[in-house]
Amino acid sequence: MEHFHLDEFARLNSPIHRFDPRAKILSCLVLLFIVANLARPVTLGVAIAVILLLLKLARIPVGLIARRLAWVLPFTGGLILVLPFTRTGTAVLTVPLPMVSLTATADGLSAAVTMALRIVGALLVVTLVMTTTRFNDFLRALSDLKVPRVFVQLLSFTTRYMFVLWDELRRMNRARQSRAFPNRGFASRRHTRMTLGHSIGLLFIRSYERGERVYLAMLSRSYGGEIRTCGHFRLFGRDVAGALGIVALGIMLFILDKGGWTWLISWK
């Protein structure tokens, strides 16, 4: 069956793609922390612009970036909508409701804008790393960076078997529909609820049994408790320079954000 690609654009060729994954992950992690802590909309705007520029340099399509951003909207959208109403201060907008009236304040509004920009910025950093690194290289870089092996293996098995599970789920769904099972009217009928419940249970059991078989198959190939891989990354001067550049960008943003330009002006 057809599956979506995790790293569709990771095979393109650009300076960002050629960037050593370990250096990329580490430096972007620093940048991520800094962007998530910037307080001024101006510096956040600069950060976002620079990261977008890097994404453009990596030739990542705008549509993909927009889709990635859209993914988090359900999670953060609510928070951003509520935030303006949670601060005290000058009222900007009042929403009259039957029982109470909600008041948005200027402080609250700017907090919401900052929060939204932080989320977008942080997400763009993650997008920059994940769309320009092949997933397998990403995992290998994590284990090179001494991320606990259990965690890396968990990520690897999850992504590998996510697709297998998804197929199984789709097959079960089709088989149900083939026997005239209505997928609508979810909660209204006991029969529907029971059927779906059983399907979920079955999926659990199948996954458990598959896990057992996967383990046996690994033992059959002399597995001894450790997954070792072949091939190693090579760190070049340009990787170090790139990493330092990204960290420097983060530090500059940080200084500017803390009011650095007034120091510069007063220094003259």
């Binding site: 997933f135 995992l139 598959r210 996967v214 198959a217 059959s220």
Partner: peptide, 11 residues
């Protein structure tokens, strides 16, 4: 193994 998805686990 019969089902290659049981055996082929790498990325």
């Amino acid at each position: 193994f019969q089902d290659p998805d049981d055996q082929v686990f790498s990325m």
